[in-house]
Design a protein around this nucleic acid. Structure first.
Lengths: 236, 236
DNA sequence: TAGTGGTCTAGACCACTAC
DNA sequence: TAGTGGTCTAGACCACTAC
């Protein structure tokens, strides 16, 4: 644990315990630096992290203010897979399709590979606490994810990628849209003909820029939404 | 313009000009610091910004790599209002409703105010290039936005807030969901009975933690989507 | 083993705010 | 005018990677 991580945790604790109440000003960076016996830059790095999380807001010439707890803190994101997102829940996967094929033009572009590079084409229904939750269609280049098995698909692909293959993600790009439901949604998500679905299109890329996944996730509109915290750094 | 902003711009230019091609390693931070005659920390700050924008990816022990241009750079966000988001377009607003009332319980909670504090209740159809684009319902505490007029509503509220009232936002929290269309959507967005809508629920808050806006935006599903770039800092 | 990026220090200067 | 946070320096140490 780095110093700034420890300090960020300490400040967070004090906010929770009411030592730094909502809407109050934190001690100045200089004062905190003296208290924690670190340089001011280290305090600033800790504060910057909490600003990004939506807990604090800094303004030059004024200070750093504790935001109201009403503002939700940074929402959980989806790049670690459903299993990491809902750790408490019982998550199962029903495999609808598990194929290896060559990518069509659209997928070649999405995955940034040639037409001769084989890909996995995986269609899964994720089931949370016994209820159909999300219908996922996932495409992955075979060479980046060797020896994928049905057994892995029934659990968490991401756990396998991270813990077994030691793969590290650099980022994900998502587009969220609404769509009419289709016959697959009706069948697997148990939704009504009139029901819309919330669809998340996701590209996951690695440190070296290669794209390891392109996927579309179709969610029941009444059970799922997507949240984003957007911190504005208009600077000072 | 700060030094690190200038350097970030310079690196970005070199990527665009192919001097730093996709998938290649940048010169080391030390080398860049010498070239630009700044400290390494300043170079790092420039690089960090480009990592957040999705252009670069750094890894300790390895270096900083240029990502494929396929990966979309940081998507435009919505906190500056539609007018800033679509600067090229001709944006008009049709005012459906413009009232002052007291907030109900749900809105008291969303805006974090008491029931005796008056709010604006604004219902607008935003029209882009002559086509219905999004149906916005906006709630704002009156004391934060004094003297709002129909004239302002017909243009951009955000421009008024930022340029006239000099108000600065600290952040926004959004939830994106799909919904069935209702009679307002049919009437104003011109959509079919079967069509879903993409709804964005947004809270905008200020530096001092006060919430200046809670709004719901309903978009035609076939004309709008919401994009997010999520950079993962698994550190090292 | 050499080179990388992440963290950290102890200073400094300055734009900005509130008074 | 005093105090704040943002930027910047010239160093240092170290975890990590590739060889």
């Amino acid at each position: 644990m780095t110093k700034y991580e420890w300090i960020a945790g300490e400040i967070q604790k004090r906010i929770q315990n009411g030592i730094y109440p909502p809407n109050s000003l934190l001690p100045s960076q200089q004062e905190l630096a003296e208290e924690f016996d670190v340089s001011r830059l280290t305090v600033k790095k800790a504060i910057d992290g909490l600003v990004i999380s939506g807990l604090l807001s800094s303004q030059r010439g004024v200070g750093t203010r504790v935001l109201h707890p009403t503002i939700p803190t940074a929402p959980a994101t989806a790049h670690n897979g459903l299993s990491a997102l809902l750790p408490e829940k019982d998550i199962k996967s029903h495999i609808i399709q598990f194929d290896v094929t060559f990518p069509n033009e659209a997928l070649q572009q999405k995955l940034q590979i040639s037409g001769t590079q084989p890909i996995y084409d995986i269609h899964r229904l994720r089931i949370v606490d016994g209820k159909p939750f999300v219908l996922e269609r996932t495409y992955m280049p075979v060479d980046l994810v060797p020896s994928l098995t049905k057994n892995i698909l029934e659990g968490s692909i991401y756990q396998y990628l991270q813990e077994e293959l030691k793969i590290r993600f650099a980022g994900a790009y998502r587009t969220i849209r609404a769509d009419r439901s289709n016959k697959f949604d009706w069948k697997y998500l148990n939704c009504e003909t009139m029901d819309p679905v919330l669809e998340v299109l996701q590209s996951v890329y690695l440190n070296d820029g290669r794209i390891i996944e392109y996927s579309t996730s179709r969610n029941r509109y009444d059970q799922n939404s997507y949240s984003v915290l957007d911190v504005i750094d208009a600077q000072n």
